[in-house]
Design a protein around this nucleic acid. Structure first.
Length: 491
RNA sequence: CGGGGUGUAGCACAGCCCGGCUAGUGCGCUACGUUCGGGACGUAGAGGUCGGAGGUUCGAAUCCUCUCACCCCGACCA
């Protein structure tokens, strides 16, 4: 934990909000519950998109796009699904405005009422399965492996920048398969893709697990997730992958002729990650000086700050920098030469640190004389002076080291913040004072889960896939349990 | 939807309780000079329908009523 970051109290929210704004990532919109993602924030999201998209394509998926609007009746087809989302839908009821009778402003034209209301998609299972019905007749049409990059709307009571906004950006994969096994395999494959993305790109260690009945996606048979630990000891669900069974196929009557010539319902999956990952990135890695970006997601990996008194000096530095930039680009390192003469070096140092740029090079008259350059890393704030012709090669190694170090640090933190407990008193104490993951035995019932949530605000984050089978007794009810599950207060 | 809070310059805020001249402060912005290896300093300047509507009053940022928006806590949230 970086010193100074407020923990486990409301100050953390303020700190987080301030950082998001100061680092120029996003801000609250004047539109209720919505967020403006600013160019710098969006450029990080784009890096995430690119990496994920490549991983999706590598696993055989293709992109497509479905409508923003979902007829109300579609949503109602799957009982659990509608119950899960009904409370947070934006609904389009009219299609026209007109001048108000009193001449002041405009009003909704009552004559322009839609026959059937349209829901702004809170997720796209229904509208997509409606299409799948038309696309699938035979096992030869399967599998369908589609991903969509889109925005969705969930009318949340309370919003937080990136973590929960009324509108957000995400990707949602929706696949259809001929067999249950194939769909289960797909569900787990995509869970692994998400975990790999989080760990390799975001430098964010995650626990792969299964959701309890009470926490699973409305309409799913099984929900799998990756759970991450934030610096304030709260958990964050970073991605989900659902095995839908035949639920949506039945709801939308999607049957296919099997190889054996029988009719069967199609098996489905869906999986998604959202701009919430931005929140995870911020809350997992930042320190008092601002953001710390993992090199693999940094829109700018290296910033070069010249130190100069006059134009002549800047010109001399510019010449030197040209070579460094060329060398770095050869190694596919993205680099920015910050030659603004409107800000001073110290200001620039602080600004780029705030924005989390992994590596900074500083080059001044002294360096020109000595043939050196100062290399500073954002994660540890260490600086070293090295011969300028070795800079590019060293930076490549350094970037890799930063990526690994960030993961290591986050993994150690999560390790520290994971506490096995065996009594409910201990459970309450750890959740209340320290937070983090609590590994405890649970009797597997919804009632116990709800009671624990009521008493501690902690929920079952997941049943880890790699949980060791270990007979024990439920921390709350004392009934037998086969393995520990992870509890935490969560975002 | 409940509890608490805020709305005054681009940003952060003071002033409001107890009404009174031309509405302040810091940061930022503009110009000039000195600076420039960790968020520079000086001087001069620009920038305001005090969230909106109505009311009380000779007079409202300040008091009253209504309203809108946002923030924090909760409820909610797969």
């Amino acid at each position: 934990m970086a010193k100074g970051i407020p923990t486990r109290n409301e100050d953390y929210s303020l700190w987080y909000n301030e950082l998001v704004k100061k680092a120029d990532l996003a801000e609250h919109s004047d539109v209720r519950g919505c967020m403006v993602i600013k160019p710098y924030g969006y450029s990080i999201w784009e890096k995430m998109q690119q990496a994920l998209d490549t991983m999706f394509k590598d696993t055989g998926h293709v992109n497509a796009y479905f409508p923003l609007f979902v007829p109300k009746s579609f949503l109602a087809r799957e009982a659990d699904h509608v119950e899960g989302f009904a409370k947070e839908c934006a609904i389009v009821t009219h299609y026209r405005l007109k001048n108000s009778a009193d001449g002041k402003g405009i009003v909704v034209d009552p004559d322009a009422k839609l026959e059937e209301e349209l829901i702004v998609r809170p997720t796209s299972e229904t509208i997509i399965w409606n299409s799948y019905k038309k696309w699938i007749q035979s096992y030869r049409d399967l599998p369908i492996l589609i991903n969509q990059w889109a925005n969705i709307v969930r009318w949340e009571m309370r919003t937080r920048l990136f973590l929960r906004t009324a509108e957000f950006l995400w990707q949602e994969g929706h696949t259809a398969h001929a067999t249950a096994q194939e769909a289960v395999d797909e569900t787990l494959q995509m869970l692994n893709v998400y975990a790999e993305f989080a760990e390799k790109f975001m430098a964010l260690p995650v626990v792969k697990g299964k959701k309890s009945e009470g926490e699973k996606f409305p309409g799913a048979v099984d929900t799998y997730c990756i759970e991450a630990m934030m610096q304030d000891g709260k958990a964050l669900q970073a991605g989900t992958s659902h095995f839908l069974g035949q639920n949506f196929a039945k709801a939308f009557d999607v049957q296919f002729a099997t190889r054996e010539g029988k009719l069967d319902y199609v098996w489905g999956t869906s999986w998604g990650v959202s701009t919430r990952l931005m929140g995870a990135l911020i809350m997992a890695h930042s320190d008092d000086d601002g953001l710390i970006l993992p090199p693999k997601l940094a829109p700018i990996q290296v910033v070069i700050v010249p130190i100069f008194k006059n134009d002549q000096e800047l010109q001399a530095i510019r010449e030197k920098v040209k070579q460094i930039v060329q060398d770095l680009k050869k190694h596919n390192v993205s680099v920015k030469f910050d030659d603004r003469d409107t800000q001073k070096p110290g200001f620039k140092f602080a600004e780029w640190e705030l924005k989390g740029i992994p590596v900074r090079l500083a080059l001044g008259p002294r360096d020109l004389e000595n043939g050196t350059v100062e290399v500073a890393r954002r994660d540890t704030k260490e600086k070293q002076v090295m011969p300028v012709d070795q800079a590019a090669v060293n930076v490549v190694v350094l970037l890799d080291d930063i990526q690994k170090n960030m993961f290591k640090k986050a993994a150690e933190f999560r390790q520290q913040m994971t506490t096995p407990v065996d009594t409910f008193d201990e459970f309450k104490k750890v959740i209340g004072e320290r937070g983090g993951f609590v590994a405890a035995h649970w009797d597997g019932t919804r009632e116990t889960e709800a009671a624990i949530k009521e008493l501690t605000k902690a929920t079952i984050r997941c049943i880890p896939l790699d949980a060791t089978e270990e007979p024990g007794v439920c921390v709350y009810s004392g009934r037998p349990s086969a393995r520990r599950v992870l509890f935490a207060q969560a975002y």
